[in-house]
Design a protein around this nucleic acid. Structure first.
Lengths: 190, 190
DNA sequence: CGACTAAAAGCAAATTATTTGCGTTAGTGT
DNA sequence: ACACTAACGCAAATAATTTGCTTTTAGTCG
């Protein structure tokens, strides 16, 4: 099932999408996710269930759509004066958000929908890349050495995400800092 | 919903579980996963739907249960004479299996069920750890230097899995070998 | 061995979710 | 303003899920 990509702002479609998204956020904050159903969301949003089924296909797609929206960063990484501290702060915040209950649920929603709509997981990865690129560009402007964004993904982002998804214990703050440290040190040594 | 942990082998429960698992594998190989439903599985397995609902709760749990089973490695990593080549071969096979269509589907099934049953994702991670530990133990027996299993997970397994889950392009064979290389080299330098 | 027990399965009715056909409405372009 | 189209609402039809109750089965004990 396809979600329309370009919706004209202000149109009826946009209003329906907004009220449905809002209803989902509302309900997820109030109740267990397994108790959230499409008829419920439809009632809360003031639309008929068939509208949701036709636009999103099923609950998983809808949840993924909302989750991607919420995973989009709202601001560029803070400029702390050096690439290292920029990255440290960004990574700690990233780990915290993703390891939180809502964060984990959102990641799962996004991944679970990949079968039907391959774009979602890629979008999340894209957001991360953009954030890291900002840090890397700032480093370049300052004349600091800084590894490629892909290397940061491999050495810092991927371990954090793997631990969150597959391990019981999410990475501690110390572990995150250590990952950053190791990457920067390894880079110098090469 | 809980899946019984200790089922006496040969009992009725075991037979039902076996036939349901078999039915799921059968159907998944024949048709699109979105067309697989519990009533269908029940018919194929020769049980009533309510039996499946009571034992597994919902389709996601059942799929996850089957997926974990299939993700369990059937043999220890091959002994190739050196830890480095052991790891290279294991990592390449791991990346191939996980990046394949069925592999990705199984990972998603496992992750999607985590909300209800936290053990599944941990089990997969556990299998990986066991495999790597075998390689590490062999290295120790040979007197070779070899990094901690957790380091291998951070530096080799996590990047592979991240790329498979979030990126469009799964890691190439060359990339996997490079990850192994980088980890071993970095380890020596420290 | 044969009766007893508890767990799990079957069955069927009730509930709830999903799909679909068709009429209506709101935005878009001429 | 008028026609056109995409998206929505409504309601009937279909399919999935839940539930109460009965029956079967495997293990246990006298």
């Amino acid at each position: 099932m396809n979600i329309r990509e370009n919706i004209r702002p202000g149109g009826r479609s946009a209003r329906v999408q907004a009220s449905v998204h809002k209803a989902v956020r509302e309900l997820l904050s109030k109740m267990d996710r397994n108790d959230v159903t499409i008829p419920l969301i439809a009632t809360e949003a003031g639309v008929t269930p068939s509208t949701i089924y036709r636009r999103w296909g099923d609950l998983q797609e809808l949840l993924a759509d909302v989750a991607v929206e919420r995973l989009r960063p709202d601001a560029p990484p803070k400029d702390t004066g050096s690439a290292r501290t920029d990255l440290e702060q960004w990574a700690e915040q990233y780990a915290d958000e993703m390891a939180s209950g809502p964060g984990r649920a959102m990641i799962r929603d996004v991944l679970a929908s990949v079968g039907a709509d391959t774009r979602n997981a890629g979008k999340c990865c894209g957001y991360t890349r953009e954030q890291l690129q900002v840090i890397a560009d700032r480093a370049r402007d300052r004349g600091e050495a800084f590894p490629d964004v892909e290397a940061v993904i491999d050495e810092v982002v991927a371990p954090i995400m793997y631990r969150i998804l597959f391990d019981q214990a999410p990475p501690t703050s110390a572990k995150v800092l250590w990952l950053v440290e190791r990457m920067l040190v390894g880079r110098r040594a090469t």
